[in-house]
Each structure stands twice: as structure tokens, then as C-alpha cells.
């Protein structure tokens, strides 16, 4: 009887030590749930969700302080993915935060730009190149299309240009299955 108890206590102590050690050794840095949410968010960093960037929004969702339908660039699909991750019912996008727009990049009219650097300070991803009193240019490959550079420009020389479909980015469309046979169409 005593040996049995001792053995059980011994096992408990060993397991406890192992668990305690691994809790320290394999400590997860940061908030793993917020990481996962942040991985789903589109990283446009536009602030339309009401937070200063995607990461703060992710943290707010993780803490349960924000709803999952506040990110317009992520669209309905983003909401669905978040719902899947969090195990809640998907809902439709909250229109008060904005509606999804076609993907665009900012374009600076270089004739009008006065080189005030205000747009550089606004850009969350440093996608604008230029220096004081020099003409500024958008690095299109790095622009997320957040539109944050539009309001600060004193001469309104920045516009958003939708990304045109080119060959490397062309996508097959969802096939439309003919409802009417082709023969009928031709007779008509």
C-alpha cells in the first residue's frame, strides 16, 4: 500500500517537474491567438477597422474587444476565415467601417508634387520614396492601397489607380455552366 502511494507520488513529482520545465523552456512569446488572427488580416494597415493597423485590431479581436467584421479590405472572405479560426458564426461585413474596393495602388502626379514629405510620414509601409523639396514616387510593388497618403497631400496630387489585370495575374473565372443549350440560341 505504502509503496503504491510512494510510486504514485514519485510519478506525480516527475511529471510535475517535466511539465514545469517545459512550461519555461517552450514558453510561447506573445499572444499566439493574435498572431493567428494577424496572419489572416490583409495587412493593408489602413485603419478602417478603427485601430491603428492590423496588429492592434488582431489583438483587440483576440481579447474579445472588437468584432470580426470590421476590416473592409479583408472582405466577406476575411470575415469567414476569422469566424472559422475563432469558431463563431460568420456575419456580414460591418458597413460603417467601409466597403471593399477593387485593389488599387497610389499614384503621385509628379508634375504637381511639391515635395512636402507629408505623404511619406503617413505611409504605413514606407512605400513612398522622396526627400524634402524633391518629387515623390510610389513604389507600386510595396503600396498596399491603404489611401492614408491621400488626405495629407496639400496639393491633392495623389490618386488611387485600380490594378489592371495583366497576363501573369490573370485568373480563370468561375465556370458558368450554360443553362440553355447552344443550339437553341442559334435558332433564335
Amino acid at each position: 500500500m505504502l509503496t503504491a502511494i510512494l510510486v504514485m507520488v514519485g510519478i506525480a513529482v516527475v511529471i510535475g517537474l517535466v511539465l514545469g520545465w517545459s512550461a519555461i523552456r517552450f514558453k510561447v512569446e506573445g499572444n499566439p491567438l493574435a498572431e493567428k488572427i494577424d496572419a489572416i488580416l490583409p495587412q493593408t494597415q489602413c485603419g478602417q477597422c478603427g485601430f491603428p493597423g492590423c496588429r492592434p485590431y488582431a489583438e483587440a479581436i483576440a481579447k474579445g474587444e472588437a468584432d470580426i467584421n470590421q476590416c473592409p479590405p479583408g472582405g466577406e472572405e476575411g470575415v469567414k476565415k476569422l469566424a472559422d479560426l475563432l469558431g463563431v458564426e460568420p456575419k456580414s461585413l460591418d458597413e460603417t467601417h467601409g466597403t471593399p474596393k477593387p485593389k488599387s495602388v497610389a499614384f503621385i502626379d509628379e508634375q504637381t508634387c511639391i515635395g512636402c514629405t507629408l505623404c511619406i510620414q503617413a505611409c504605413p509601409v514606407d512605400a513612398i520614396a522622396g526627400a524634402a523639396k524633391q518629387m515623390h514616387t510610389i513604389i507600386a510593388a510595396e503600396c498596399t492601397g491603404c489611401e492614408l497618403c491621400l488626405p495629407p497631400c496639400p496639393v491633392d496630387c495623389i490618386s488611387m489607380v485600380p490594378i489592371a489585370e495583366d497576363l501573369p495575374h490573370w485568373k480563370w473565372k468561375h465556370p458558368v455552366i450554360e443553362i440553355k443549350p447552344v443550339e437553341l440560341k442559334r435558332v433564335a
Binding site: 494577424d38 488580416l41 490583409p42 495587412q43 493593408t44 494597415q45 493597423g53 492590423c54 496588429r55 504605413p124 509601409v125 514606407d126 512605400a127 510595396e142 498596399t144 495575374h169 490573370w170 485568373k171 480563370w172 473565372k173 468561375h174 465556370p175
Partner: peptide, 28 residues
């Protein structure tokens, strides 16, 4: 199948772009 493949590729492209944006934002 062609539709699904090209959608998956497009998504991977978007994901790479998002990762780049995250990195640049964090660096900023």
C-alpha cells in the same frame, strides 16, 4: 480545376504581399 488552381495561386501571391506589408509596417 483550372479555376481553383489559379485562385489558390492568386491567394498565395496576396499572402506574400501581405507578409511583405507586415514586415515593412513593423520595421516602420
Amino acid at each position: 480545376y483550372r479555376y481553383a488552381k489559379s485562385e489558390i495561386w492568386a491567394r498565395e501571391r496576396d499572402k506574400r504581399a501581405a507578409d511583405l506589408a507586415r514586415e515593412r509596417h513593423e520595421f516602420r
